[in-house]
Nucleic acid binder design. Sequence first.
DNA 1: GCAAGGTC
Length: 832
Amino acid sequence: MELIVTEKDNAARRIAEILSDGSASTERRNGVNVYRWGDKRCVGLSGHVVGVDFPPEYEDWRDVQPVELVEADVVKKPTQENIVRTLKQLAGEADRATIATDYDREGELIGKEAYELIREEADIPIQRVRFSSITENEVKEAFATPDDLDFDLAAAGEARQIVDLLWGAALTRFLSLSANQLGDDFISVGRVQSPTLKLIVDREREIEAFDPDDYWELFADLAREGTTFEAQYFYREDGTEQERVWDESGAETAFETLRNAGTAVVESVRRRRRTDEPPEPFNTTQYISAANGIGLSAQRAMSVAEELYTAGYITYPRTDNTVYPDDLDPEALLSAFTDHYLFADDAEMLRSADDIEPTAGDEETTDHPPIHPTGEIPNKDDLSDDEWEVYELVVRHFFATVADAAEWEHLKVVADADGCSLKANGKRLVEPGYHEVYPYRSTSENHVPAVEEGEQLAIEDARIEEKQTQPPRRRGQSRLIEELESRGLGTKSTRHNTLQKLYDRGYIESDPPRPTKLAMAVVEAAEQFADRIVDEEMTAQLESDMQAIVDGEKDLEAVTEESRALLGRIFDELHDSREEIGEHLQESMKADRMLGPCPECGEDLLIRRSRKGSYFVGCDGFPDCRYTLPLPSQGEPTVIDEACTEHDLNHVKMLAGRSTFVHGCPQCKADEADETDDRIIGDCPDCGDNADGELAIKQLRSGSRLVGCTRYPECEYSLPLPRRGDIEVLDERCADHDLPHLRVVDNGDDPWELGCPICNYTEYREQQAASAIEDLDGVGQKTAEKLADAGIESLSDLRGADAEAVANEVQGVSEDRLREWQAEANVSASAD
DNA sequence: GCAAGGTC
């Protein structure tokens, strides 16, 4: 039997399909798909199925000095037990094996991991095949000409793993211990995340240090035969045109001249044509940027693309490549769309061109083809809105890469008004080219009439505007990802996760991301004592060491030993500064949680966390001062810039994904609740009969509102109410529950007829249950449907499910994944 | 429980 191993299940399935000419069947082993035909078995891994770690005696952070990690052993442990077991079983039955993991460095390492697992079971010949896209030609060609694993290339990857673990773990533990942060809120640093954070922090420093300058700009409306157009004042300095006037009196003088001139004489008219080239094929970074342009975060863009890929509609979304492979026949792919109700016209138009020549980028890699549609077209109704919009983006981007360039005509008019120069720049799209099929880029025109030299134009209006130079702008998520790519930080598969990690660690907030005080302190501490970990140069050096390993000039041992020695020297320096660093980090963390003065003792009010895990506002003077204010129970509180003038407290925002909201000043919220009387609306359904409990609309000090029993806390019956808007109690009553209907009036919007609060809550719970599965991390509509077919339609169904049985039934969902979801379902059960 | 890199 021949065993074929791929990097992921999807690739295994498609390769089996190609090599078996469609005859392969699927069996499940330990919840893992195995494809079989003839004497072949093909199994997909899930990326790395083993990972590096320290031996167990290094596990406890308190028992081990971080410096001890510098010389610690690094061992490999299985991380995907089921897959490792299946692979070994298959290896035991095989008489030869073929490694068909991805054609890049990490793929070579994953292949070597599989090689070693197979070797533990059987001494059989193991060969390696390489292909860049899973097409019939490439796959068959690769299997006809097998090669050997490149152990040097894999060793380069292993060196990276070891160096990253040593530096990351040792320094993360050092900082966390120094600041006494050992729980969930440890303080992490790493070769990629820390230079990324420094990039954000450095920009923030520039913004903070920025000193604005005043300047003035002048404009005039020029008229010609009833049409007017705007022109801007400029002057020449060192041979270049300057629009900004830096002294006020100079600006005023020019303004007076313009205002009194009456007419301007056209000095020159210049026409220029500019070619606007169509975009290059999508790599991951450019795709994320474009998806950002239609409103998706980097994370969301990748998870939607992942869904579309798994469903077979687009090619693999993690790629560095910007050159379509020879195997891609653009005309054939266009033909797949010529019957589609939405794409037919564009596809037909492009296909009818004499010569279809796609654009190509600078990056030609072996990993995967650029992202493009496969030609299998989804039904719009089967996709979520985001999924469809992304699909259309990918289709149209492919269209654009085979479309013609656009042509713009630029018209520049320069006129003179009593010695003051004015200019107007017009632009007109004369050949729409690719814009016809790709509506994601601006084609706005600026009309300037075709005046002639010497012509006199009336000045209808003159304006002077006082402005200030602006600090550099914070980079948005996609801009940051582009920046990481250009600096060689991270990979196509990790860059978006790196940003997410910085959010999760409390280092950055909002979008565009801005650093917290903690982030500033971590970067400062690193710059002072372990500069290498925040320096992008560490990656550059590692890359060159890895190249040396590939070229056989260095070995893994030499590279990791050198790195350990360097890390050891950093620890020599760190040793004496531990307390100083810890204090600085702690102060900064406190500053991130500080709201303002305590009304009782004047110390600082801080956001704190109770032993049970809920957040509240408490005084830094505790235990001498026991002043507290409650916070909403939903979400993670964060301090925002806005502040309450009455209490001198910063406002609080609650981060809870899509239900994020601004809580405001916690003192105001508490005061409001104290001043609001409960409004009784009927009997409590739980205890109204035997204890005379009544239901009332209550405003809580935490800012939330509910319908609850007047006997609280003896009776805990409650129904949630919206946070915003005035609640009106109507005369109409619910026949089933004998309660009045409610209406929510929020200024401006149409009132919301909430109806009977019990009926409303019941309906809300049903909707929640229906969408709960899709809300799970990484579950798209397709997977949700498959789960529904297996009887899993809501979170609660998942709680009682047999993970192994479900994994065996539902293709593409691993048992591990299901167990993660079950854990999530149990958390939400306890929240209910 | 630490990193970064795969994948889901």
